[in-house]
């Protein structure tokens, strides 16, 4: 019997820092094995070789910020059997979505002297705002173990198994002492999606929400607790308005504290 054809993988980039696709190259122990199991049809950061679609699995990094990119993602969706977004930019618009809360023309003229040369949309939006997304991998940046799980899952034909509970649970699993209870450090862990390994608290730092909101987060209650710790309303707004500012739960909570 002939061997089953290899999964045809493509990696695409929109407005982003390249860090999530770099995470694939950062799988130093697994990269050559992965390259053996899949057919890398498009991965510009790593290879000049490009094969035409259709693709079995497209990994999409970055957010939509230009007219050109808004049409490019439609083409990629049409050419892809499965489309997975990787990272906070693709999943929630990224840090560049802070423009969604301001007048973009002020932003352009602050950075560029001749704004007429710049092609940009007024907003930075998630991939799911434009096309159907089959699976979203969270994080700013994504976690390498989770990326391997996602690629492995599609190679073997099942859905990726990644937990969706809060960072709090991960701290308990690791045995990390709660920074909010023990040190009075404001922490977004109770409302933030797991996946990082609960890093910040192990470094005695409060979680800053780079994996975005967990399922059904009680952000209002957390803000109240932050208030008890003496955090000012404007700092609550800033805390929810970072790398996942336009994720719905974080957007709403920030707006609730904006006066």
């Amino acid at each position: 019997m002939a061997p089953a054809p290899k999964l045809k993988l493509a990696v695409w980039k929109f407005a982003s820092c390249d860090g999530c696709q770099l995470t694939l190259l950062n799988c130093e122990d697994e990269l050559l094995a992965i390259a053996d199991r899949v057919d890398i049809a498009e991965f510009r950061e790593a290879s000049r070789a490009v094969a035409q679609g259709p693709y079995d699995l497209s990994l999409v990094e970055g957010s939509i910020t230009t007219v050109r990119d808004a049409s490019r993602i439609l083409e990629i969706r049409r050419a892809s059997k499965t489309l997975v977004t990787i990272g906070a930019c693709a999943t929630a618009g990224g840090i560049q979505a802070l423009r969604n809360f301001k007048d973009v023309n002020d932003f352009i003229s602050l950075v560029y002297a001749s704004p007429q040369y710049i092609d940009t949309l007024a907003t930075s939006t998630a991939i799911a705002a434009h096309v159907r997304v089959d699976f979203e991998l969270r994080g700013c940046p994504i976690d390498a173990r989770q990326l391997i799980e996602v690629i492995g899952a599609y190679v073997h034909g099942h859905r990726p198994r990644t937990p969706s509970h809060s960072v709090c649970i991960e701290c308990k699993q690791r045995g990390t002492v709660c920074v909010m209870v023990a040190r009075g450090t404001p922490c977004l862990g109770p409302v933030t999606h797991t996946g990082c390994g609960a890093l910040c608290p192990t470094y005695h730092r409060g979680c800053y929400g780079c994996f975005g909101p967990m399922e059904t987060p009680n952000t209002g209650s957390l803000s109240e607790w932050w208030g008890h710790l003496g955090v000012r309303e404007e700092d609550v707004v800033r805390a929810f308005r970072t790398f996942n500012a336009d994720a719905e739960a974080f957007r709403r909570e920030a707006q609730a504290h904006e006066h």
Partner: peptide, 12 residues
């Protein structure tokens, strides 16, 4: 032609 992300503005 990487899309600009306006960091200098969003830092304000």
């Amino acid at each position: 032609f990487e899309p600009p992300r306006f960091f200098e503005a969003l830092l304000r």
